[in-house]
Design a protein around this nucleic acid. Structure first.
Lengths: 187, 187
DNA sequence: ATAAGTATTAGTACCTGCTACTACAACCAA
DNA sequence: TTGGTTGTAGTAGCAGGTACTAATACTTAT
């Protein structure tokens, strides 16, 4: 890499640090063919923190994000009322990562996931799998909306449970689903 | 916190470091009411690296995990063939975090999500939302299985696209879905 | 009770990756 | 030529350690 003007160098520095945050000043100095002091001055001007600080911040923010992801994986939505074997209510807020970037409309499978995991929660058996789902999306759901899903078992035949789930935002019904859940014997 | 025996102290140390990895030796020493040297000896015995090393490892692993999560969020499954406006094939491997811990059977909404995002990929429009879904789970899917979903547009009426998705593992059909996707005008 | 062994504390030299500062040289532009 | 920008060099000091030596306190076995 040849030596370049200050402005250009600082731009490269920004890029480098953004791409590989684990580089020390010494390594950066070698990469940009300048002295360590120059790198330090550049960092000072650009407000780039030192290596350890960069790593610390990454670790912190990444930890937070991971935690929220883990929470999300478990049960989709928050169970706020449950009468096992009868009915249940779950609440879910549409966050940024659930919508299409362009349209800000929620991806369909989040509503499905909320309804499906609620359905498997209300039927009062140790294990169950989904057999059939009949789903209707009535109106598009946008970022920031709070969805309340209500599930009700309407019929049981043998090991099959017929569950209806209706999901509303604060104004209207946005989604409805009919599931047939199959209770599963431990092998 | 009162002083305790070595064994117990080391157990507490492990817990503390696990819970709050950002504690320095000095802070740990204060918390456990022993000298900094004792903490260092304990860390040595237990193979706990120093603060900076702990943070570095967190940052690294968290970054990797976040990347894989992000990849997962985008499109569920891997698009391996796509004829826009006509058909498409997607592949998904069932991993540990997709199954119920007890039964090792995949949660239904992963198959749904794969099918749904494939369906929205095959219809060749800038934006689309799911209108109706009709889903049948034929056999339970277990951890480690590779699922191949094939989608086909069978009918178009106005801005409504009728898409069938059939999903197989290496032996049989495990899932099938019929979607009505609605093309969405930019507002 | 006393010796042997374990657990703990104290202190020193050294390391990395810096910050903060001073001093000075090189360049380029008016 | 003069002056401002730009780049280098070097020093002192810091955090959070490692690695090591030495000394003290506490237990336990005999």
């Amino acid at each position: 890499m040849p030596r370049v003007k200050k402005q250009q160098r600082q731009q490269i520095l920004l890029d480098q640090v953004h791409e590989k945050p684990f580089l020390t000043d010494e390594e950066l100095a070698r990469a940009l063919q300048v002295s360590v002091q120059t790198i330090r001055l550049d960092r000072l001007e650009l407000g780039i923190p030192e290596l350890r600080e960069r790593i610390r911040r990454m670790a912190e923010s990444a930890q937070d994000k991971l935690k929220s992801v883990e929470r999300k994986e478990e049960v989709v939505g928050e169970l706020i009322d449950l009468e096992p074997g009868h009915s249940g209510i779950s609440l879910m807020r549409i966050t940024e990562d659930m919508v299409y970037a362009k349209s800000q409309i929620a991806k369909g499978h989040y509503m499905f996931s909320q309804a499906n995991s609620l359905a498997s929660a209300v039927i009062d058996v140790p294990m169950a799998v989904t057999g059939v789902a009949n789903v209707k999306y009535k109106v598009p759901v946008h970022m920031g909306e709070k969805l309340v899903a209500k599930a009700e078992i309407i019929h049981v035949r043998g090991n099959k449970y017929f569950v209806w789930v209706k999901t509303r935002n604060d104004r209207e019904e946005v989604f409805r689903a009919k599931f047939i859940m199959v209770a599963w014997e431990a092998c």
